Simulated assay, not measured.
Amino acid sequence: MTAVTSFHHRTTLSDIDIERLVRSENADDRAVATHKICRVMERGRLGDTDRAAAQEIIRMLAQDAAELVRRALAVTLRTSELLPHDVAMKLAQDVVTVSVPLLTFSPIFSDEDLADIIRSGGPVRQIAVAKRETLSEVVTTALADNGVEEAAVIACANDNARFTEGGMNRVMDRFGTSEVLHSVLVNRKTLPVSVSERLINVVSASLREQLIAHHAIKPETAVEIVTAARERATLDMADQAGASFDPQGLASHLMASGRLTPSLILRALARGHMPFFEHALSELSGVPHERTWLMVHDAGSLGLRAIYDRAGLPGRMFQTFRMAVETYHTLQAEAGHLDPIRMQERLIERFLTQVPFAPREDLIYLYERLDRDSQGRLWAKSPEKSANDLLKAA
Rank of each mutant, 00 (worst) to 15 (best):
G167S: 09
A65P: 05
R291Q: 15
P314N: 03
E42L: 02
T12D: 13
Q319W: 04
R59S: 13
M343Y: 06
T140M: 02
L390T: 06
T261M: 07
L264K: 06
L313T: 00
L46M: 06
D145N: 13
P275C: 10
S382K: 09
P219V: 05
E179R: 02
S194D: 02
N160Q: 10
I117Q: 08
A142Y: 03
E231S: 00
A311I: 12
A216Q: 14
T5L: 04
G286P: 05
S252Q: 13
S386I: 00
P192D: 08
A31N: 03
M60V: 04
H329P: 01
Q210L: 14
C38R: 03
V100F: 14
N26E: 12
R170L: 00
A241E: 05
T134V: 06
I18C: 15
S120N: 03
S285M: 07
V4P: 08
P383A: 14
D373Q: 01
V98I: 09
R39C: 12
G44R: 03
T11Y: 04
S99N: 02
T164I: 00
E384S: 13
A3K: 07
L207D: 11
P84R: 11
A216R: 13
T221K: 04
D309Q: 10
P314L: 12
E165S: 14
E133D: 12
M323E: 15
A233L: 10
S178N: 03
S183F: 07
